[in-house]
C-alpha cells in the first residue's frame, strides 16, 4: 500500500488557544480514515490545514507527495472537498456546478462530458443533471457535492461531517456511496465525524480530543482495548467499593449506574448475582461501542460545544437554504 497522507507533529494555535496539539498520523491509499471527536476537538482545524485553508503553526503535512504549506496548488489539485455546510448555489443546476468546478480544476474540455456522466451516475443523480439545486433534498445535495469533489479525480476525498443534519436513511445511503467509491475507483477518503455509529464504517479511526490524538486503530481493535464487555449495574449504596474490591476492577459511577469491564460478560452475570445476593437491582451486559472507547480514553462522553457566531449563522443557513432535509 502507498501512503497518501503523512502528518507529523502538526500544531495550530489561535492566540493562546491550541486547537491542534502535535498530531501525527499516516493514511494509506484506498483507506477510509475517520477523525472522531467532539465539536471543538480540532477535527475541522486539521482538515483545514490538510486542504491548505489554514497554515499550521508548526509541523508538516504531506499530501499525495506535496507539502501543504509549500505546494498548496498541487495539494488542492489532488484533493476533493465536501464541507460541513453545503457549498452549493441554489440558483445553479447540478450540471452547472460540475462545469464551474471543472473550469477551476483544469479538467480538459474533451473529457468533461464523460466525467460529468460518470460522477453523476456514481452518486445516482444522472437524471437530475439539469435540475436546480434549489429542488434537491439534503441527501441529494451531499451526493452532488461528493460527485463534484470527485470530478477532477483527486487522490483524497475529504468529507467534513458529511452526514450532519441528514436523516438516518440518507446517512446510510451516503455511506453506501462512499464505500462504493473506495471500492470502484480506489479514492482515499478522509472524514471527520462526531457520530460514533458512523465512525464504525471507517477502516481506521483516530480519536481526537483537545487537539491530541488519543488512539488510532481499526474500530474493532479500539473496542478490544476496552477489555471485554461492559457491565452496568444498579444497586445499593456501597456497591461501587465492594465490586471494585471483590473483582479488582475500576468501577465508574455514571449517573446512578455503575460501569465496569470484564472479559466475558455473559458468564459474569450469574457470578455477580451470586456474590452479592439481594444487593443488585438491575444488571446489563453491553458489547463495547466506540462511545465506550471514547469515554474510557477521555473520561467523558462526546459533548457539544456552545454555539459560536458561526454556528448561529449555520442554523440560519439551514433555515434559509437547507430546504428539505
Amino acid at each position: 500500500m502507498t501512503e497518501v497522507i503523512r502528518v507529523e507533529g502538526l500544531v495550530k494555535r489561535f492566540g493562546d488557544f491550541t486547537a491542534v496539539d502535535g498530531v501525527s498520523f499516516t493514511v494509506q491509499q484506498g483507506e477510509i480514515f475517520g477523525f472522531l471527536g467532539p465539536n471543538g476537538a480540532g477535527k475541522s482545524t486539521t482538515i483545514k490545514i490538510l486542504s491548505t485553508l489554514l497554515k499550521p503553526t508548526s509541523g508538516t503535512a504531506i499530501l499525495a507527495g506535496y507539502d501543504v504549506v509549500r505546494q498548496p496548488n498541487e495539494v488542492r489539485q489532488s484533493i476533493g472537498m465536501v464541507f460541513q455546510d453545503p457549498a452549493l448555489d441554489n440558483r445553479l443546476t447540478a450540471e452547472e456546478h460540475l462545469i464551474l468546478h471543472a473550469m477551476l480544476y483544469n479538467v480538459p474540455r474533451s473529457v468533461l462530458a464523460e466525467r460529468i456522466d460518470q460522477v453523476l451516475k456514481m452518486v445516482g443523480l444522472a437524471d437530475r443533471r439539469k435540475s436546480l439545486v434549489r429542488t434537491f433534498s439534503g441527501g441529494m445535495r451531499r451526493r452532488l457535492e461528493i460527485a463534484r469533489g470527485l470530478l477532477h479525480h483527486p487522490k483524497v476525498l475529504f468529507l467534513d461531517e458529511p452526514t450532519v443534519g441528514l436523516d438516518p436513511q440518507t446517512r446510510a445511503a451516503i455511506w453506501e456511496h462512499v464505500r462504493r467509491l473506495r471500492d470502484e475507483i480506489g479514492v482515499t477518503v478522509f472524514m471527520t465525524t462526531h457520530y460514533m455509529d458512523e465512525a464504525e464504517n471507517c477502516d481506521r479511526i483516530a480519536i481526537i480530543d483537545h487537539g491530541k490524538i488519543q488512539a488510532i486503530d481499526t474500530p474493532a481493535a479500539l473496542k478490544r482495548r476496552i477489555g471485554g464487555d461492559l457491565i452496568i449495574v444498579t444497586g445499593d449504596p456501597g456497591l461501587q467499593e465492594d465490586l471494585a474490591a471483590r473483582y479488582g476492577v475500576e468501577v465508574r459511577r455514571v449517573g446512578n449506574e455503575l460501569h465496569f469491564q470484564v472479559a466475558a460478560g455473559a458468564e459474569f452475570v450469574p457470578r455477580v448475582v451470586a456474590d452479592f445476593p439481594g444487593r443488585i437491582r438491575s444488571i446489563q451486559v453491553k458489547q463495547p461501542s466506540l462511545d465506550d472507547v471514547f469515554l474510557q480514553l477521555t473520561g467523558r462522553a462526546i459533548r457539544d460545544e456552545e454555539a459560536s457566531e458561526l454556528d448561529l449563522m449555520r442554523q440560519h443557513a439551514r433555515r434559509v437554504w437547507g430546504g428539505r432535509r
Partner: peptide
C-alpha cells in the same frame, strides 16, 4: 461573507486558484 461560509465561494477557496 455569506458565500464564504455557506456558498459557492467555499468551493472556490479550496480550488487551485
Amino acid at each position: 461573507i455569506w458565500d464564504r461560509e455557506f456558498g459557492f465561494l467555499k468551493e472556490v477557496l479550496v480550488a487551485p486558484v
